[in-house]
Amino acid sequence: MNNVYDRVRSIDAFRAVTMFLMIFVNDLDGVPKTPSWLKHAAENADALGFADTIFPAFLFIVGLSIPFAFENRIKRGDHRIPARIITRSFALIFIGFYHANMETYNEAIAILPKPVWESLLTFSFFFIFLDYSHFSKVKRYLLQGFGIALLVAMSVLYKTTDPGQTWLHLTWWGILGLIGWAYLLCALIYYYSGGVLWVQAAAWIFFLFFNLDFHFGLLDFLAPVQKYAWIAGNGAMQAFTMAGIVVSVMYMRLKENKDIQLLWIGMILLAFILFNLGIIVRYFSGGISKAHDTPSWVFICTGFSLIAYAFFAFLVDFKHKYKWASIIEPAGKQTFTCYLVPFIFYPIYEMTNLGYPEYLSQGTGGLIKCLIFSFLMIWLTGLLNKIGIKLKI
């Protein structure tokens, strides 16, 4: 008989699809003559593109994973969970900081060309965060030491295009950094509250209101320190993650009581409420905008995530249909590796300057190329895993 805290395959499937789509929309971003609705909406547009829903879904999945992962660790007698939360969050924030600086690398005055610097930086992350559980201590220390030395060298060689700056500095936290901050706060809330449902719900509502208050101007006094503040933003990222935690706690409690059918009713009802709230606040708080983390974007994208997970939970956990996900399974289980693999591929592609047929550079051909690329990155992740190369933070 399966334990209620066993690994939930619907979360793996949802994560795999979301990771696939994240690679796809990132690759599609620079492809001309492709449907605009698939891409991110313009920075100052009151609009929602398909790409704008992917990152919120990923943060939602981070929240979904926390209760099951923690309960399994507690069941195994692992009492190092707070230390694990801090080290994992720091690793994500640390890499996110470098990725944010990657965007302003000044190739004109730096010693190394940008593709070379990016690839060497990414290799350093692989050496530092490789899963060394099957390595001897000597090999681990040698390889990690090499990775740290390589990272230090890349840090020393870094130059920026930002005016008034010459070296690595905080611009924004980067995608991984935002995930790290959301994970840190939400995981600590879950752990120290003992997973009590009403506490998770209260925290979720707090972050939603924090985001609302920020956009209504009630938190303007925080402006001078906002990007350095403990909230690490305006509450949007934490709201997505806490929503996932609430759903997972509901999942566990309802499964224990054999009332799992209420989960779908609850998620669909919550999504309906959030969609309506998103439409209402759209006219009072900056419209729908991922670029500005508006409340309307938070409400509506959380609603989409709820509907999406209701589908995956029904298909995978209730109907036991999981084989279809095997082709992209590495994206759901080695997600961190999968995220970083393109950061090796893109610089190498730029350095080799191989190019590809014009048909694949735009329009329908461009869409096909992006789909193939996403599958290729996931296949490479699976291949690396088979030869013992996977990242662990």
Score class of each variant (00 low, 15 high):
residue 43 E to I: 14
residue 172 W to L: 10
residue 158 Y to S: 02
residue 299 F to D: 06
residue 275 F to K: 01
residue 50 F to T: 11
residue 65 S to I: 12
residue 239 A to K: 02
residue 106 N to T: 13
residue 206 F to H: 07
residue 62 V to M: 13
residue 391 L to E: 05
residue 344 I to W: 00
residue 284 F to N: 03
residue 314 F to Q: 03
residue 348 I to L: 14
residue 220 D to K: 11
residue 348 I to D: 05
residue 61 I to L: 05
residue 273 I to Q: 04
residue 284 F to I: 04
residue 173 W to E: 10
residue 200 Q to I: 09
residue 320 H to Q: 15
residue 257 N to E: 14
residue 180 G to S: 11
residue 114 K to G: 03
residue 32 P to V: 09
residue 65 S to K: 08
residue 235 G to F: 01
residue 288 I to D: 03
residue 55 F to V: 15
residue 280 I to E: 12
residue 310 A to N: 05
residue 143 L to M: 14
residue 88 R to V: 03
residue 166 T to R: 13
residue 359 Y to V: 09
residue 284 F to R: 02
residue 65 S to H: 06
residue 76 R to H: 14
residue 143 L to I: 15
residue 308 A to Y: 02
residue 238 Q to H: 08
residue 50 F to K: 07
residue 76 R to A: 15
residue 325 A to L: 07
residue 134 H to G: 08
residue 305 S to C: 11
residue 374 S to P: 05
residue 333 K to Y: 04
residue 189 I to R: 02
residue 96 G to T: 08
residue 275 F to V: 06
residue 80 R to K: 15
residue 247 V to F: 02
residue 23 I to G: 00
residue 125 F to S: 02
residue 241 T to E: 08
residue 343 F to D: 05
residue 340 L to V: 06
residue 147 G to L: 12
residue 384 L to N: 08
residue 307 I to W: 00
residue 162 D to T: 15
residue 267 M to C: 09
residue 310 A to V: 05
residue 275 F to C: 02
residue 287 G to S: 10
residue 313 A to T: 05
residue 304 F to Y: 10
residue 36 S to Y: 09
residue 314 F to M: 02
residue 327 I to W: 07
residue 25 V to D: 08
residue 181 W to F: 15
residue 122 T to I: 00
residue 83 A to E: 11
residue 232 A to V: 08
residue 2 N to M: 10
residue 50 F to Y: 14
residue 349 Y to H: 05
residue 60 F to P: 03
residue 8 V to T: 11
residue 163 P to V: 14
residue 53 T to C: 12
residue 254 L to F: 01
residue 118 E to R: 13
residue 138 V to A: 12
residue 144 Q to R: 14
residue 9 R to I: 08
residue 116 V to N: 03
residue 286 G to C: 07
residue 330 P to R: 10
residue 248 S to M: 11
residue 82 P to L: 15
residue 110 A to V: 13
residue 120 L to C: 06
residue 361 S to I: 15
residue 140 R to S: 07
residue 201 A to E: 04
residue 126 F to P: 01
residue 333 K to F: 00
residue 281 V to E: 07
residue 112 L to M: 10
residue 131 D to N: 11
residue 222 L to E: 10
residue 61 I to Y: 01
residue 92 L to A: 08
residue 385 N to L: 03
residue 233 G to C: 02
residue 272 F to I: 09
residue 238 Q to V: 07
residue 224 P to Y: 13
residue 359 Y to N: 07
residue 305 S to M: 06
residue 131 D to T: 00
residue 298 V to H: 02
residue 343 F to T: 08
residue 106 N to I: 11
residue 74 I to T: 07
residue 311 F to Q: 03
residue 7 R to V: 15
residue 277 L to I: 10
residue 314 F to D: 01
residue 97 F to M: 15
residue 322 Y to V: 06
residue 260 I to L: 09
residue 99 H to D: 05
residue 211 N to L: 03
residue 386 K to E: 09
residue 219 L to I: 08
residue 154 M to H: 00
residue 64 L to P: 05
residue 360 L to H: 11
residue 36 S to K: 12
residue 340 L to H: 04
residue 12 D to I: 06
residue 137 K to S: 13
residue 283 Y to R: 14
residue 352 T to G: 12
residue 211 N to D: 12
residue 373 F to S: 00
residue 345 F to T: 06
residue 175 I to T: 12
residue 255 K to Y: 09
residue 163 P to M: 13
residue 167 W to E: 07
residue 355 G to D: 11
residue 357 P to E: 04
